[in-house]
Amino acid sequence: MKYVGEAPQEELATGEHPTRNRVARSILDHGPSTVSELAGRLGLTQAAVRRHLDALVADSVVEPREQRVYGSRGRGRPAKVFVLTDCGRDAFDQSYDQLAADALRWIARTAGGGERGEAAVAAFARARLADQSESYRRAVEQAEPARRTEALAEALSADGYAATARSAPNRQGEQLCQHHCPVAHVAEQFPQLCEAETESFSELLGTHVQRLATIAHGDGVCTTFIPRATATAEATATAETAATAETTDHASESTAGRNPE
């Protein structure tokens, strides 16, 4: 983090207020948060948190949203959560978004534009992730099978993605949540970056994964669903059983009405 005078740049962007900065930082690290969650994490009263949130909203650093609910929703209105705006993320992200976007546009044009250009950008995104994921691979391979998603989250956090792993609501797998994305602004224009990352996660974890939400598309957090190994095995077994049954049915149909030799 670069500093200007005595205060971090991120503090200057959030009103030069240390506690207010802690509120914004907590949202960055943990994703969309309610007043109650922020108060618990920071050891503040809910009234104090609301006061800081009001100031952050006025400064366009955070914004309120209705909490997303995966699966069945209970009674009552969804809780209000607070998420970082693009301006808020910029306060924590010293990236060269414009330079990166210009470079990718140049790659696309040089490749001929159109589908060729898109393919060239996709190839770049995959090559970038291949280099970046070597440290992730080591972390995942050294972890016990049950901790591999958590190990990947820790490795991603070391690269600034503020990632966490948790059980999915349906208990059929896990959710890998990235509460920050250093390249979100560029990924808005070039979704190949998100697609390459999803492919990389699938390859690292050795299973098909599903991207549920991305910061680049306006969500508060990038969320990837990783099915449990047993669930994947059950799905594979079901598919194989169905394929075998279909083959048997076709064989029966082809011999129907024939006299045995």
Rank of each mutant, 00 (worst) to 15 (best):
G113Q: 12
A111W: 06
R75T: 13
A119K: 05
K80Q: 09
L99H: 07
G76H: 12
V83N: 03
A108F: 07
G88S: 10
R105I: 06
L84H: 01
G114V: 05
D93F: 01
A108Q: 11
W106G: 04
R105K: 11
S72Q: 14
C87A: 12
L104M: 12
C87Q: 11
Q94H: 04
F92W: 10
A100M: 09
V121N: 07
G117W: 06
I107D: 12
G74I: 09
G113W: 11
D93C: 01
I107M: 10
F92L: 07
A91F: 06
D102E: 14
F92A: 00
K80R: 15
A120V: 13
V81H: 00
G113N: 13
R73Q: 14
I107L: 15
K80Y: 00
P78F: 03
D93E: 08
A108V: 01
E115S: 04
W106Y: 03
E115T: 11
T85N: 08
W106L: 12
V83H: 09
T85A: 12
R105Y: 10
D102V: 02
D93K: 02
R109F: 15
A101Q: 07
G113D: 08
V81Q: 06
S95A: 09
S72E: 14
L84C: 01
G113E: 11
D102Y: 06
G71Q: 13
R105Q: 13
A103N: 08
R89P: 00
G117C: 09
I107Y: 09
E115Q: 05
T85S: 10
A119N: 14
R77K: 10
C87N: 14
C87R: 07
R109V: 14
A108H: 02
